[in-house]
């Protein structure tokens, strides 16, 4: 690994100004589980690294019936997976977090890091998309909030500007008559990357879909919402034929590539299979 200067600021302000001072050469370090691999292999050789670990208050999970779920950017995946609030109300997020690496990795990896890597295959992002997460971003210029849907630009690329830090995520409150689920297609049970990831959140009222959101991972340059499928489902009961239609629409909306893990055709086919399963499982949780 190449040598670098390590800064360990204790406030967001200090972190932002350190990033500003070091121009384009500084990298933010959260959990480090992805970054260190890249540094070791020489894929990235940062001159300066700004660790967020010493800033207090960035790793809290809070829930409020009016404002919803608030998770600090430095919250560990393991904490998200184990939070009873998230398991009960934002199940797909807990499931997504539990799919990241191993327990040892999840004790280091953070939610902010998983998002900011902007991997199309990130396990938490499909869930965050369906929960309509808002990202709170701080910098020397002030703070801004953007919906997670607008955050991703391409594989490994986000709209995060240099010097900006994702401090917190906020997901709106969950209606009582809703359920969610995340399914990851993989070969190994644990420690695999998502070949395809599908998250869904379903809200039922009087037997029909009052609201539904579907998030897809690893099947497009960025994590995406399967909005066409959502529109097909809304206002309908979850009959076999509606589910099939929606699943096909989700597959249609995906634009996967072929890579060493699997082919584009398989990915598209699995979006169809897993969308149906994810919706059924989400509805079953209501």
């Amino acid at each position: 690994m190449r040598d670098f200067a390590l800064f360990e600021p204790t406030t967001i302000e200090e972190a932002s100004s350190l990033l500003a001072e070091n121009g384009g050469k500084a990298t933010i370090l959260a959990g480090g589980t992805d970054l260190l691999v890249g540094w070791k292999e020489g894929i990235a050789t940062p001159k300066s690294v700004v660790s967020l670990a010493q800033i207090s208050g960035l790793d809290s999970i809070a829930y409020d019936e009016n404002t919803g779920l608030s998770i600090g950017g430095m919250t560990k995946m393991r904490a998200i997976e184990q939070s009873s609030t998230i398991r009960n109300r934002y199940t797909a997020l807990a499931e997504g977090a539990s799919e990241v690496g191993s327990i040892q990795i999840r004790n280091l990896a953070t939610l902010g890091g998983n998002i900011c890597n902007a991997s199309p295959a990130a396990d938490t992002v499909a869930a965050l998309l369906v929960f309509g997460a808002q990202l709170e971003i701080a910098s020397t210029y002030g703070e801004r909030t953007i919906p997670i849907r607008d955050f991703f630009v391409g594989p490994g690329e986000s709209s995060l500007q240099h010097g900006e830090i994702v401090t917190r995520l906020v997901c709106p409150p969950r209606p009582d008559n809703s359920g969610s689920h995340y399914i990851k297609q993989k070969i190994r049970e644990v420690m695999d990357l998502a070949f395809i990831g599908v998250a869904a959140s379903v809200e039922l009222a009087h037997g029909v879909v009052a609201d539904v959101k579907i998030g897809l991972a690893a099947v497009a340059p960025t994590p995406i919402r399967a909005t066409d499928a959502e529109n097909i489902l809304k206002g309908n009961s979850l009959s076999e034929s509606i589910l099939e239609q929606a699943a096909s629409a989700a597959a249609e909306q995906s634009s996967p590539i072929s890579d060493l893990r699997c082919s584009a055709e398989y990915r598209e086919d699995m979006v169809r299979v897993l969308t149906k399963r994810t919706i059924q499982a989400s509805a079953a949780r209501i």
């Binding site: 049970e189 644990v190 420690m191 990357l193 060493l260 893990r261």
Partner: peptide, 23 residues
């Protein structure tokens, strides 16, 4: 072990999968 025109494309324990106890 997978190869293309640049050589081995899965030189690590993520994409070269050995089973774990969970499998």
């Amino acid at each position: 072990m997978q190869y293309d025109q640049n050589g081995n494309v899965n030189p690590g324990l993520v994409d070269y999968r050995v089973p774990t106890s969970a499998d």
